[in-house]
């Protein structure tokens, strides 16, 4: 497998997810990344619950 193909393969489980699951994953990763610099990310559980509730209505 070429480097490029294998890089894409890593993210395949996200790319192939149904739209709403992909939305949750992408938004959760962004939220986690924003708070990565904190050892204990403040209010992250609330942020994630909000993301799930907004994506699945």
């Amino acid at each position: 497998m070429s480097d490029d193909a294998s890089m894409n393969d890593i993210q395949e489980p996200i790319a192939s997810a149904p739209a709403e699951i992909r939305e949750i994953i992408e938004r959760v990763l962004r939220a986690e990344k924003e708070k990565l610099y904190m050892k204990i990310p403040r209010n992250i559980n609330d942020d994630i619950l909000k993301i799930i509730k907004e994506a699945i209505q």
Binding site: I14, E20, K53
Partner: peptide
């Protein structure tokens, strides 16, 4: 919502496993 959270966890776990393996090899 529970099912969606579960599916997201499963997919991310798979991504993590692929990332750790393939990235390490590269």
């Amino acid at each position: 919502r529970i099912a969606a959270a579960q599916e997201a966890v499963e997919r991310l776990t798979e991504v993590k496993s692929r990332l750790e393996k393939q990235f390490r090899l590269q």
